[in-house]
Design a protein around this nucleic acid. Structure first.
Lengths: 260, 260
DNA sequence: GTGCCCTAGTGGTATAGAGCAATAGGCTGT
DNA sequence: ACAGCCTATTGCTCTATACCACTAGGGCAC
């Protein structure tokens, strides 16, 4: 609970770590106000500038946001869909005022294919929950999504209701999985016969294929996924900027999936 | 040349701007050492911490890199292809050990289509240089690229040699255009008859269509482009991470085009 | 009530000064 | 010649202090 001055780790960094841990432990929740610069400096017996350095550091990495005259607050995670999954299907839907719906086509425990098992780091024969969902905007099917999650991570997932709630919320809230990182690959393809029928599109319809793996805070793979989007309805926009930082935040390239 | 204390602009920010301008003007070139904290504080009559704040600020945004015991230096631009254009065609080629080649299919002054003129902010009838290039890895055509650049920006471009040199290098070095920002959109499509013949692929081949606009340091549009990639050879990978900053740099999501 | 001002608390900027850690290059002893 | 030390220079951390800008809320005047 105190800082250690006899170790070659900067005080501001120790304090930043400490605050990060408090957030990770749930002692500080998104939206909560963190102690101010003056309070921290007194509490940990450091100068205000040093306390400030820790806060600025955390603000820069996106963990905190501060507002002059009000205080400093724990930032919303804004990762689950946004940066992490890139797709933002639900967001894109809500933005357009359409109602996101899902039909569960498959949900159960299986022995995953070799390629999937490898992505998930599973030993031979280890089981996983397979989930296949078709997602709609109102009545139009837009996206077919297949996910595999190791059974050991989510014992009851095969029985949970997935039609009405997000898989990511479920994983985080019910199974305590903290998703932090994702690798994904996007490519162009055309609809196969099954997909043609499912989406009700013509032969040769261009589609976007998104595959990838999400990882938790221990860098262990959590989910292997594959999603097929209707190519005529989705675009991907990418904005890169080498601009001046706004406040303390350095602008990162923005990438988002938009519905045409 | 001096800082102004009677305006509500922070000193550290004024100094940062000043250094940025010196880099933009070519007085400081990539790799050059910038004056140290102590020198700057004396030179501009500000405290050392304030000078330092300016340097840290510029380091964070990637303009400078500093090394303890050595000094602070102007960073390499590393933008032209990397973050800016996303595609990194030449890089992907060189990485695989293949030789990037280009055949110029069209190069001349035209009155651009309405939609392009709008993107470039051109008045009706204003002319632009149109460039169409087919780009190869060795002998395989992989990418068809069409660019429009306002004629006023690059008077001689219609005559320049584009087969052997990069359009971006040419714009920067010969016409003094500083490309800083890009918006682009990626979508899936299928090859049309002309593209089928050009690439020598079958009907219905999935393709990636990348369109966008690049902007200069005054936020004026410089180029409108459209690129068609062979879908069976290109993938897009995206890696998002919410990690700890390394040094002063916050990791941004990495997006790159890879050749399958 | 309504509008205004004042004030306490917050983050943001700036100062001056101290010591630490890493680097590069010259110097010195062998 | 060479290895090792020494020192100047650089960036990095930290302290203590001051004042400014902005916000929210209480209380006062109307």
């Amino acid at each position: 609970m105190a800082l250690n001055r006899s170790v070659p780790v900067p005080l501001y960094y120790q304090l930043a770590e400490l605050i990060r841990e408090q957030i990770a432990a749930g002692e500080l929740r998104p939206g909560d106000q963190v102690p101010g610069e003056r309070t921290l400096s007194e509490q940990y017996q450091i100068s205000r500038m040093t306390a400030r350095q820790a806060l600025v550091y955390l603000e820069r990495e996106g963990t905190l946001v501060s507002e002059q005259g009000r205080g400093t607050f724990v930032a919303a995670p804004k990762l689950t869909y946004d940066a992490l999954h890139l797709l933002g299907f639900t967001e894109a839907m809500l933005l357009r005022g359409a109602k996101p719906r899902a039909r569960v086509l498959e949900q159960g425990v299986v022995t995953p294919p070799l390629r999937v098992a490898r992505d998930l780091g599973l030993a031979g024969g280890e089981e996983a929950v397979k989930i296949v969902r078709l997602r709609f905007s109102d009545v139009t099917p837009l996206l077919l999504e297949t996910s595999y999650i190791p059974l050991s991570r989510c014992p009851g997932l095969a029985q949970d209701d997935l039609a009405s709630q997000s898989l990511y919320t479920l994983l985080e809230q019910r199974y305590g999985v903290r998703l932090l990182r994702a690798t994904q690959t996007l490519e162009a393809t055309v609809a196969n016969a099954y997909e043609q029928q499912l989406f009700g599109v013509a032969e040769g319809m261009p589609m976007i294929l998104l595959t990838g793996v999400t990882f938790d805070d221990h860098n262990k793979p959590v989910e292997q996924f594959k999603a097929i989007y209707r190519g005529d309805r989705f675009k991907l926009t990418y904005e890169s900027e080498r601009g001046a930082p706004v406040g303390n935040q350095v602008p990162a390239p923005r990438l988002s999936m938009v519905l045409a």
